[in-house]
Structures are given as C-alpha cells and as structure tokens.
Design a protein around this nucleic acid. Structure first.
Lengths: 345, 345
DNA sequence: CTGAAAGCGCTTACAG
DNA sequence: CTGAAAGCGCTTACAG
C-alpha cells in the first residue's frame, strides 16, 4: 500500500519492460489510439497500474505542443483589480474559469493583476491560450498575445478588436441602461458619471448611454475621469471635488466599484447620505456589498461569462468553430445607496 | 514592427544558425552559465533579439524536470469554499499566492474546490509543488501528494502532519481565544459553538479553547457539528434547531463563515437580533461583511500566510532549508452582529 | 571558449 | 497487431 518514497516516477520505458512490449505499444494501449490486441492491452494496463505509472505531463506537453493549460489575466490596474482586498470581479471570473477548465481536463493559471512586468512574462508561460479580462485600447497584454500568435479570448469587448478575435460581451450597454434608468426612476435631476482613465468599451458604453438619457431627461451631463491606478482614493477625490464644484449633484454613477466606495466616503464626509445623494456602480461584488451603506449595482453573470470564455478558447485552440455565446440578462440589485430614493418615488 | 502571424516560434537552432554558433553556445550565452566570449555572446544576443527568440518553457520543463509552476488547492468542500459566491478564504489566499509566485518567476495554478475527481487529477498536473489550504484528517489531497512525493505546504496545521512536512500555522488557538473571549466580554452566558464535520485543527483548537473558557466562566458547553457540504443551509438548520432546543442560547460562534451567515438568518427568523443573540465567526472575509447584519470576525492575515507558503514551498523544492515563519497577530473585527453587546457591557 | 552528443519522456508516422 | 526510429526544444556533462 505504502508507496516507496523518493523512488523516481515510473516512465513509459519501465512499463514497456514490465509488460514485455515496446513503448509504442504502451502508448497506444494507454491512449486508446491505434489497434492493440486485447490481451496485450490488458497486460500493459496491469503493468501500468502495478508501477503506478502516470504519463509525464511535461513530456506530453513538449511532444504535443500543448500544455493543457490556460491562463487568466486582468488588464486592470492592481489598485482596481487587486490590492489589499484581492477580491472581486477578476477573482470571481478566475474561480469560475478554473472550475470549467478543470472539467475540460485543463489547468488554469492565475496571473497577478496588471503591472509593468506582466506582458513580458507572457511568452515564458507554458499555456495554450489566455483569457484577458476587459482589455483596454492599446492593451499591452493583447499586443503581446497577438505578436506571439497565442490564442486568446477577451471577457468584455475591447476597442480595436479584430474580426477573428474572440470576445465574450459583458452586455455593457444593457448594464449602463439599467443603471442610468434607475437614477431616472429614483428621481435624480443632476447625476454625475465617474469613469476610469483608460479607453475601455464599458466606459464608452456607459458614457454614450448616460448622454443619451441625459438628453432625453434634460440633464446637464457631468462626467469625470479618474485614474484607474488611484482606485478607491481616486473615486473619493473626484467625488469630493465634484460636490464642491456643484453641490446640486444628487447622484454619482461610479463605474468601477473601487471608485464607488470612494464616492460613498466622500459623500458621507460632505454630509450627503443616500436619500439625498445616490451612488450606483456597475459590478455587484463583495465590494459593493461590503461598503457602508451597501451600493446599488448590477448582477453581471460573471460565472456564466467565465465558462463561455473557457469553452470558446478551447474550441479555438482545437481549431473548431465556436458557436455564438448567449449569457443571461444582467439584473439590477438595489441596495441602501439608492434604496431610499426608490421608496420616495 | 508588425510581427508575422502564423510563423512558428524561433527555436534555439534558429538562433544558433543565425549567430553562426552551436546551440550549446546559445544556451550558455543566454543563461549566463559557462564561459562565453563577450563578442560571441553579443552576436547570440543580437540574433535572439532579431528572431524574437524565447526559450520554449515546455522544453525547459522537460529537460530540467521543473515546471516553474505551483498549484493551490482547497480541501474544503465546494459548498464551503466555492459555490455560488466563489469568494472568500481560498481566493484571498490564491490571489496573494499568485502574486508572490509571479515575483519568483513562477506560475500559480488555481485548482477548483475539493471534489471527488480532484485528487486523481493531481498527478497529471505539471507543477513542482502544491499549496494545500486547511487539510483535514485523512485528506485525500495530502495522501496523493505524499504517495507521489510531490512537495507541498499546508496553510493551516493539520492532523497527522509529519515532522518534515511544511505548515504555515493559522494561529487558530489565538484566533479562538480572541473570539471566545469576545463573547465573554459582551456578557454572553450561554454561547454555543458550531463546527464542521471534518477533523481539522482549526475545529480542534476552537473546541478546546471554548471548553477551557466555558469551564472558567461556568458555562455549560453547547457544541454542534454541521456537515461542511451543507454550507450556509447547514448553519441555518443547526442554529434553528439549537434555538428550539435551548431558547436561552445567547450567542453562536459559527466557525465557518458560511455557517455564520446561516446562523444569522436562523436567528433573525426566530426574532433574535444582535443585542439579544450574538453571532461571531472565524474569518473576516467578503461573506462576514456582506451578511446583514455584518458579522464580527477575525482578520486572519491571509495574504501574509500565502506569501510565506510560496516562499517555504519554493525553498523546499530547491532543497534549501526554510527559515521559521512568523505572521502578524490576528485581530478582532467587531461588527454589528456583536457590536451592540460591546456597548451594553 | 566552443561544440558534438546524449537524454529528459513522451507520441506518431512509418515499416513490417 | 507491434516496434524501431525520429523528433518535440532544450540543457548539461564531457571533450577538445
């Protein structure tokens, strides 16, 4: 029972010797490829079991040119995607993607949040494809992947995507509409929009939707840009300034959840609590729930998106055509940061 | 500028040819090992740059017998560690571990939460070592790792750990003491303890600490066991039963955060809200913060633990002696689920 | 300082 | 049905 420690793993040659056949036959018998006599096959199987043989994944990877591994990377700055809390959007996707990959007998490599050395590290990875979360315009990760011709799929559309590149849309237009219409519904007359300073499709869609509805409602558009790298503090600073510049502002749609936490803090400091000033954000995650008061946000269906990303990427790697992706519709989750308005209405 | 697509990656042979030297010399020049003439080295470097050469990680892995990859696995059941939310304890560790691994030029494989097929998949992984989160008695992951002689480090002590096995203690005694003494401080006279149904060191320590303090305080020990696989619903059911059996119970220390959410729900249903019935849990994570009311818990210093785990594991793989690990002390985070008592006291 | 050769452990035409 | 041989792309004694 007790396996001998420090004994090197059995190789295919060991099994071949034990079964009295060639390595070729062992390979065929174990993989099911090629014709092998039933009796021979059984002999090989027995020998393999007896020796506790497991094909070396390293050798298989080299020989096949496949690592049976995928990676997932976020192109968001650490302050937004990682940082102290290490929770949220990216990890929710990563966990679901890892599970799905495992079901496909693939491994999922968790890459750290975007930093200067991340793109350079990509070519050294032993993976067959990469999932890129919300790439931006001129994303260095995308550039690198393209240059090295490694298959990838983006979660979230991105500016400059080519026709043959795979994208799982995060329905950002629908999400933006839900959120901004919610502001309309809560009676806001002067809502501001807080976006990150990169060119991302989610920001574009948010802005377009906001402007469209603003025009319809007769709002004067108020849009501020926050450096993504500043995270929560950036949202705080921008909101503080906003409220000083224009005390009439009665709502803040902070697109990034970290910004929203900062916005809530700045609002509280200015004595502007929920019924008087509403804060909403795009992603309903640990952060929107943990902030006091909790922040109204949208259920984005990230696990479904992650699973679709894995399936699509694997199909692409295998050279198979990929079917169209359809995700369940996003849903508004009303929390205290705007719930009061709701009741007032 | 624009790299040609579909052109296969340059190999060491291509570089050798371009530089007019042997592959051996290319290898030496690039790795810095062995003596290589400065002029020759430069020629090699130039050729490598020109061709965009990157050593194949697959070939290096096979040749060196190292994959430059680690994996992280949770031995907790899916209902506790993963499930719908996909957040929490395990992911907080995984994210910090991935960052640290990256700093060491290693890759981190995110394994899905424990399930029947997980242990069997282990030998097929191309990794040099594994981080196992909170193993239990007879843990199948540990068994497998031992059998295959793959280096591992446990985050959290575990029953049956051998002398030469690496462990990052999660200071469970200190944590248990902080939590139970907090119940004393809030004036609880009849606190119950909710543990999972596996044999884990954290449960052992919690129970021992609880019994010790109970004796000192003259409490009658009330301990219930919940199937880990039942997650939040298990905590709910156990607490409901508990309150029916003994309406005098005035506090529940639910060791697993999922149980604690269930406990809060059951308490609310029974009309027993915070000042009257306190709930505390071990891990201060997204779950304890997101539950209404938020739950008093302990800041466990998981990122520090994850970093120590990576460092230790890498040292072990390299055959280096590993220094002793010391983590910052855990700290109580008082939230509404017990905060009122605090004020009453 | 430089290179020919072996070998890491497989898989896959190819031949018999 | 079975096996000898080549080769995936490196690194590392070893020899010169």
């Amino acid at each position: 029972m007790r396996p001998r420690p420090h004994v090197p793993r059995a190789t295919i040659a060991d099994v071949a010797r034990a079964a009295g056949v060639s390595a070729t036959t062992v390979s065929h018998a174990l993989s099911g490829s090629g014709r092998v006599n039933q009796v021979t096959r059984q002999r090989v199987l027995d020998a393999a079991t007896r020796l506790g043989y497991r094909p070396s994944p390293r050798a298989q990877a080299l020989r096949r040119g496949r690592s049976q591994a995928l990676a997932i990377a976020s192109s968001m700055d650490v302050a937004v995607a990682g940082g102290a809390a290490h929770q949220g959007f990216f990890l929710e996707l990563a966990a679901a993607a890892a599970e799905r990959a495992f079901d496909h007998r693939q491994t999922m490599v968790l890459l750290p949040p975007m930093g200067p050395s991340l793109p350079d590290a990509l070519p050294g990875l032993s993976v067959d494809g990469v999932i890129v979360v919300e790439p931006a315009e001129g994303d260095p990760i995308i550039d690198r992947l393209r240059a090295d011709a490694v298959p990838f799929v983006a979660v979230g559309s991105f500016p400059g995507a080519r026709d043959d590149e795979l994208v799982i849309p995060l329905q950002t237009e629908a999400v933006a509409t839900i959120l901004i219409e919610h502001l309309v519904g809560t009676g806001s007359r002067r809502p501001a929009l807080l976006l990150g300073d990169r060119d991302r499709v989610t920001y574009r869609d948010a802005e377009a939707t906001y402007r469209r509805i603003a025009e319809r409602e007769g709002w004067q558009p108020i849009i501020r840009t926050v450096p993504e790298a500043d995270g929560e503090d950036g949202g705080y600073a921008a909101t503080r300034q906003l409220l000083r510049d224009d005390p009439e502002v009665d709502a803040v749609a902070a697109w990034v959840d970290a910004f929203a936490s900062g916005a809530v803090r700045a609002a509280a400091e200015a004595g502007r609590i929920p019924p008087e000033l509403t804060v909403v954000t795009r992603y309903d995650g640990p952060r929107s729930r943990a902030t006091r008061p909790p922040i109204t946000a949208v259920q984005l269906r990230l696990p479904e998106a992650a699973r679709a990303a894995v399936d699509l990427l694997l199909a692409r790697i295998a050279g198979e055509p990929a079917g169209p992706v359809s995700l369940p519709a996003p849903e508004l989750v009303i929390r205290e940061s705007s719930g009061q308005h709701q009741h007032d209405a």
